[in-house]
Design a protein around this nucleic acid. Structure first.
Length: 295
DNA sequence: AACTGTCCCTGCAAGC
DNA sequence: TGCTTGCAGGGACAGT
């Protein structure tokens, strides 16, 4: 599942490949991928343009074009961007293919089996109409200033369970289920701790771990899971999965304390793994609310 | 304001 | 072997 580190790795890959290259062909075969607009709008918006910048906000990629329009790409669960040579076969589930000029023609393929991902060409001046969620994104802990005071204000100003809070893109943009679990574990914070009641020390640990884990994961070019499909533009896996301590390890012994057995929680279809020994629930949490499934 | 469940979708694994 | 079922999850949305 692409989260901030994976999307940032893809962003860097795009910056190294497509900038300054003119679009000479566009093939849209997946109507669902361009559902926000239409295949024609994506074709017309891309053909003949040249990307001049690639940005990222949370898990959203934004490619700025010389036409003064922009492309929003969201990979959601299973989306990939792959850089293909002219003779390479199109992978199955390729929904949009954009070919660039140059010494040799190369193609950027948007591949997405589950079709949750999206490609939208839009006018940034009208972003609030076409992509209202962009303006509602919270602070990006890698791209924006994000000091301890920023996190303290976020946490103190709300009375929410800390894991759903970390996952809320309107509050902090870019953290998904994998990194949320890893961050909470490293910070020794229970996923059901109440944000407003975190101690000052816990806020400090949480801040340190958000920054450290996301930075380390970006440096490792993201996490490639056994079943998940994340790879970078060149098809290379990331390596941060070797440093996961809780994600995917429910029922196994905690690598950190060597004593706890990692537990699995589920709220509304989202799973959480944590160590009940390392991550104790302080008095303010509401630990009885979730359905516990303990292997 | 905060939370829950539903939907969208495919690939894979487990169970029968 | 071949089916069915469940699960994975990001984010919008509706309902409480």
């Amino acid at each position: 599942m692409p989260e901030l580190p994976e999307v940032e790795t893809v962003r860097r890959g795009l910056a190294e490949t497509i900038l300054g290259r003119r679009v000479v062909d566009v093939v849209v075969t997946g109507a669902r991928t361009v559902r926000r607009t239409s295949p024609e709008a994506v074709f017309d918006g891309l053909m003949g343009t040249t990307p001049i910048a690639v940005r990222r906000r949370g898990k959203y990629l934004l490619v700025m074009l010389d036409s003064r329009e922009a492309v929003m790409i969201h990979l959601r669960m299973s989306g990939q961007l792959l850089w293909l040579e002219e003779h390479d076969a199109r992978p199955s589930h390729t929904h949009v293919a954009v070919t660039f000029d140059g010494e040799r023609r190369q193609t950027l393929a948007f591949v997405d089996p589950r079709t949750f991902g999206e490609v939208v060409v839009f006018d940034p001046e009208r972003a609030d109409v076409v992509l209202p969620e962009l303006a509602r994104l919270g602070v990006d802990p890698v791209a924006d200033p994000f000091d301890r005071a920023t996190l303290a204000a976020i946490v103190r100003g709300r009375s929410r369970l800390v894991k759903p809070l970390l996952l809320d893109q309107h509050v902090i943009a870019g953290i998904g289920n994998i990194y949320a679990d890893e961050i909470l574990h490293a910070a020794k914070v229970h996923p059901e701790a109440l944000s407003s009641r975190l101690s000052g020390a816990a806020v400090t640990r949480l801040h340190t771990c958000i920054v450290r884990i996301l930075d380390d994961a970006v440096a490792a070019r993201g996490s490639t899971l056994v079943d998940a499909r994340y790879v970078d533009l060149m098809g290379e896996s990331g390596s941060y999965q070797t440093r996961h301590r809780v994600y995917g390890r429910a029922g196994l012994r905690c690598l950190t304390c060597g004593r706890g057995i990692l537990r699995h929680l589920r709220w509304s279809g989202r799973s959480t793994v944590f160590c009940p020994v390392c991550q104790r629930l302080p008095g303010g949490g509401r630990g009885q609310r979730a359905i516990r499934i303990t292997p």
